[in-house]
């Protein structure tokens, strides 16, 4: 029974309370079970994260029991899979840096220009076609991008760039740039498009031209979103695997020459996991040390992005 704690209405008016009898006898129980069920689902992702991080952490600690961190971060040779191994992760970091740098050099300006063009200059109906097309680019499997780099872009570039080897960071970087371009363009576009129309009108009303409105008011107002889209793009470039594995090759070289083959952290991980590194061997543990390094870099980027958005986000009503 659902006896109310409130006093019943005056006598003669009792019909009124008869009309209101909610059927909620099971409601408290179902409410609780829903909370528990949904909570369990939410916990799955938390547990997975904790599992991955702790595995990474334990294996990394084991690795550093055998190889000194000083050697890991300062040695200039990476020969992890050789008989007399040297673990200078800086070589892999350099490969990752080089391919990401080339990719971002392409993706940031092109992505931002595409975003400004889509949001501010393109007619509404053109935007409605172009934006999904751009986002479709993000849906192409990166292995396709990788083969495209190796079989189309590299041969083409070899005609222009003398001394370009079959595997090189230039071609990998360029195609990597196109792979992350939709991330930067689409998220920046969202941020720019979200700038309230009233700000643009306020700016025009002062006698500003379109260009002055875009550069003077709209872009500064969207800055936090633009920067976080770039940081996300950087994180994607650093973590990108298939393109660099296929197009940049597997030779760990400490170089900033974009014409030669380099190995990134991700392509090293591919190399080890597809080989047969026995469980518990030093090669096996290396995998986790490199994975941990990668994880820490992307985590820092995410934190940076989060901090930036919190600090610079403008609050509009």
């Amino acid at each position: 029974m659902t006896d109310s704690v409130f006093p019943s209405p005056a006598a003669g008016d009792s019909t009124r309370s008869d009309r209101w009898k909610p059927n909620r006898s099971l409601s408290k129980l179902s409410q609780r079970s829903v909370v528990i069920l949904f909570g369990a689902f939410a916990m799955v992702s938390v547990a997975t994260t904790i599992g991955i991080i702790s595995t990474l952490l334990f294996e990394t600690i084991e690795f550093f029991l055998e190889v000194s961190p000083l050697h890991f971060f300062t040695a200039t040779r990476w020969t992890a899979l050789f008989a007399n191994p040297s673990f200078g992760v800086i070589v892999l970091l350099c490969g990752t840096f080089l391919t990401s740098f080339i990719g971002l050099l392409l993706a940031i300006p092109l992505g931002l220009l595409a975003a400004v063009c889509l949001s501010e200059y393109a007619p509404r109906n053109l935007r409605a076609v172009l934006k999904p097309a751009l986002e479709l680019l993000a849906g192409i499997p990166t292995v396709v991008f990788g083969y495209f780099a190796l079989l189309m872009v590299t041969p083409f570039l070899q005609n222009i760039v003398p001394g370009l080897s079959v595997f090189n960071s230039l071609s990998a970087g360029i195609v990597l740039g196109f792979a992350i371009l939709p991330t930067i363009a689409s998220l920046s576009e969202d941020a720019i498009f979200a700038v309230p129309q009233s700000l643009r009108q306020g700016c025009y009303a002062l006698g500003a031209t379109k260009r002055e409105t875009v550069t003077g008011v709209v872009l500064p107002a969207a800055l936090s979103g633009i920067v976080s889209s770039i940081i996300l793009g950087v994180a994607r470039a650093v973590g990108e695997t298939m393109i660099v594995t296929l197009a940049a090759g597997q030779s760990p070289t400490l170089t900033l020459d974009p014409r030669v083959s380099v190995q990134t952290m991700t392509s090293f991980i591919v190399q080890v996991t597809k080989g047969d590194a026995p469980y518990g061997s030093i090669e096996f543990k290396t995998l986790f040390a490199v994975g941990m390094t990668l994880f820490v870099i992307t985590l820092l980027l995410n934190i940076l992005s989060f901090w930036f958005v919190r600090k610079f986000q403008e609050k509009y009503e």
Binding site: G202, V217, E317
Partner: peptide, 20 residues
């Protein structure tokens, strides 16, 4: 129109200061 708008200022319904 841009020159015109410098001569004819406008204040809007909702305050819209720039994020500056």
């Amino acid at each position: 129109p841009t020159e015109l708008r410098r001569r004819i200022g406008m204040v809007f319904q909702k305050p819209n200061p720039f994020p500056k």
